[in-house]
């Protein structure tokens, strides 16, 4: 547990080791604690609050490999003031970090079952640690498939990971983009279309879904159509967050605090809220 959890509102300093560009608006920051003793441990699906001096916090999922000793890795899309500033940070720069926070993906609970990962856009970032964990314990799972949808081929993240995963015989990787120029030889179409083409045992399958809310709603429909049980579908939800520990009230979603009861929810926990307007 990191030192900052004593006072969950107090960031600890982390030094930026690398700022790598993924796409035109997505980049990945590797950071390590300035003080020894501040941990880099996390569970797949958890997030950190990244503070950049004077600007504020952004909730960013942790996207590195939890099974390896490595810097904390955050893949970030430039969207608001804080992420714009984070994009400019150079190696050696220092950020404040609070976390890790939140309920992780149920990777342990999924042992013995087939696992489907359904990612949309930047939603692949919080799923990548889950994939690393599954692959590090490959013999504990049945079939594993990743369905990844992005806007265009230029928006695809983690190309070297995707290439490596695609090369494995014990893993199915389907990538689809919403629209592409003619030089793209891969699939075009919504990611949900790929699901019914994969082979898995519906009654013994866990699905982990992360992406824009509407994409998750359509994914759930498709998963249900393929007879996957509601209790085996997990979604990672997003709302405005300030404190990350349930004090500030911003991220409430019906009875849930996304920050501490989520971000990962079992589908039947949020089923009655999904698709309702302005919850």
């Amino acid at each position: 547990m990191s030192e900052s959890l004593a006072n969950p509102l107090l960031p600890a300093p982390y030094r930026v080791l690398r700022n790598k560009r993924n796409t035109h608006d997505v980049f990945t920051l590797d950071v390590e604690p300035v003080k020894r003793g501040n941990s880099t441990l996390f569970s797949p699906g958890q997030f950190n609050m990244l503070y950049i001096f004077g600007k504020g916090d952004a909730a960013i999922s942790i996207s590195g490999d939890p099974t390896k000793e490595q810097p904390l890795r955050h893949t970030i899309r430039r969207a608001g003031v804080v992420t714009q500033a984070l994009e400019q940070v150079k190696p050696g720069g220092v950020l404040g970090i609070r976390g890790p926070f939140g309920v992780p993906w149920p990777v342990k609970e999924a042992e013995g079952q087939d696992v489907l990962l359904v990612a949309g856009g930047i939603g692949l970032a919080p799923l990548r640690p889950a994939m690393y964990t599954l692959l590090a314990n490959r013999d504990k799972y049945g079939r594993i498939a990743l369905f990844y949808g992005a806007r265009t081929p230029e928006d695809l993240l983690y190309l070297s990971d995707l290439e490596q995963w695609r090369g494995r015989f014990d893993l199915q990787v389907c990538v689809s983009v919403d629209t592409a120029k003619r030089n793209w030889m891969g699939d075009v179409g919504v990611v949900t279309k790929l699901i019914s083409k994969a082979s898995f045992d519906p009654l013994n399958t866990v699905a982990l879904v992360c992406g824009p809310e509407i994409m998750m709603r359509f994914s759930v429909q498709e998963l249900k159509k393929n007879e996957i049980k509601s209790g085996n579908i997990f979604l990672s939800m997003e709302r405005n967050m300030k404190c990350a520990v349930g004090f500030c009230g911003h991220c409430q979603y019906g009875p849930h605090f996304i920050c501490k009861d989520g971000p990962v929810f079992r589908y039947d926990q949020v089923q009655s809220l999904l698709g309702k307007r302005e919850v």
């Binding site: 856009g121 806007r151 179409g189 824009p212 994409m215």
Partner: peptide, 9 residues
């Protein structure tokens, strides 16, 4: 869904 450009900013 494609028209909604759900992954775009």
């Amino acid at each position: 869904l494609q028209l909604m450009d759900v992954y775009g900013v």
